[in-house]
Design a protein around this nucleic acid. Structure first.
Length: 311
RNA sequence: GGACGGGUGGGUGAGUGGCUAAAACCAGCAGACUGUAAAUCUGCCGCUCCUUGCGGGCUACGGAGGUUCGAAUCCUCCCCCGUCCA
């Protein structure tokens, strides 16, 4: 029991109000925010990724934001490492860490850890992709079936991305996925997570998502994209895969109308929110709240949950 | 008033006598996911019953009738919509 410091986690789909709740709780409990979001990692992609502007942070420090340049690649493992550094620092300063999590995989990497597996290798991936191009879409899956039948059975043959990763692990480590995973993960030491989930009614969430997109547009999202394009950041850069960025890019060159871009963005955001919900539903020990993070009810409910875990 | 074209499941839309509860796409729902994760991938999607099976029943292609062993598909009348001619 001793030595285990509390770690508040606020999780939920986009637009559910995680950030707002995080800030309020940080104010109340002398905390700081650790953003757990794979998109806010990137510098210069601000409006569309929902970063909280400085002037809205109310003096609460936000960590794990703006870590890398647009052309770089980030990973869940790297997130875990950086988060641990931040956590150690907060602990030293007696601050309550509050994690606002929208990216399920990163949260899992933080809390449960990852198995000791090889990191991604761009060379191997490029080679595999080339070979897939040459031999057809299911070729890699057949290769995997030979190298690692178990994971081949688990991975759908259409899922090239996961197939490649499995082959990559097999090549680099000389072991199958199951063999690698058998060693177990490395859970976050020294902390006791208190998880609060935000799950507002679906209809309301979708409405809120639409409103948020409009607000982002008003906050200069399109201009932001124009600026990024102008700086010469190529369309293949990872953050251009984030919702909206390529749509606005197409809008800017006149390929689609503003309305069309907006519609597409609404659609993919809704789908994204669903996927987040699917992921988080499996997260164990979550105290689910039915409202948005901004609501006073959520705030007081969250306080009660945290207090009951005697933080 | 006349001439064409058309009315299909939540939407768009294919289907011109059986293999059609009806393609495809969208929307929606559910799920998987241990280093790209706002990514990537999968399933369901008229209602209903169970012994959950390439199972049974019911309802469905504007409406009403008809032809046929069998109709979204053919015929008749009616109602709507679009374009054109008066």
């Amino acid at each position: 029991m001793t030595g285990l410091a509390p770690l508040v986690v606020i999780l939920g789909p986009t637009a559910s109000g995680k950030s707002a709740l995080g800030i309020e709780l940080a104010k109340k409990f002398n905390g700081e925010v650790l953003v757990c979001d794979s998109t806010q990692i990137y510098k210069h992609f601000d409006v569309g990724t929902g970063k909280i502007p400085q002037h809205e942070q109310q003096g609460i420090a936000h960590h794990l934001v703006d870590l890398i340049d647009p052309q770089e690649i980030f990973t869940a493992g790297e997130y875990r490492r950086r988060a641990e550094t931040v956590l150690a620092d907060l602990r030293q300063r007696g601050k309550l860490p509050i994690v606002t999590a929208g990216t399920g995989l990163y949260l899992r990497a933080l809390l449960l850890g990852l198995a000791d597996t090889p990191e991604r290798s761009e060379t191997i991936r490029a080679r595999l992709r080339a070979s897939s191009e040459k031999h057809g879409p299911t070729h890699l899956h057949r290769v995997l079936a030979r190298l690692d039948p178990q994971s081949a059975a688990r991975i759908n043959s259409a899922d090239e991305q996961k197939t490649i990763r499995a082959i990559e692990m097999r090549i680099l480590a000389g072991k199958t996925v199951d063999e690698l995973f058998a060693a177990g993960r490395d859970p976050l030491p020294g902390f006791r997570p208190v998880k609060i989930g935000l799950s507002p009614p679906r209809e309301l969430l979708y409405t809120r998502i639409h409103q948020r997109i409009d607000a982002m547009m008003q906050a200069g999202w399109i201009a932001e994209v124009a600026e990024l394009v102008q700086q010469g950041i190529p369309p293949e850069a990872k953050p251009f895969q984030f919702i909206g960025y390529s749509d606005w890019r197409e809008y800017l060159v006149g390929k689609i109308s503003k309305d069309e871009a907006r519609n597409r963005i609404q659609q993919s955001t809704r789908r994204f929110a669903k996927r987040q919900l699917t992921w988080f539903r499996r997260e164990p020990d979550v105290h689910w709240l039915e409202g948005f993070g901004e609501s006073p009810e959520s705030f007081s409910a969250a306080i009660e949950i945290i207090n009951s875990h005697n933080c």
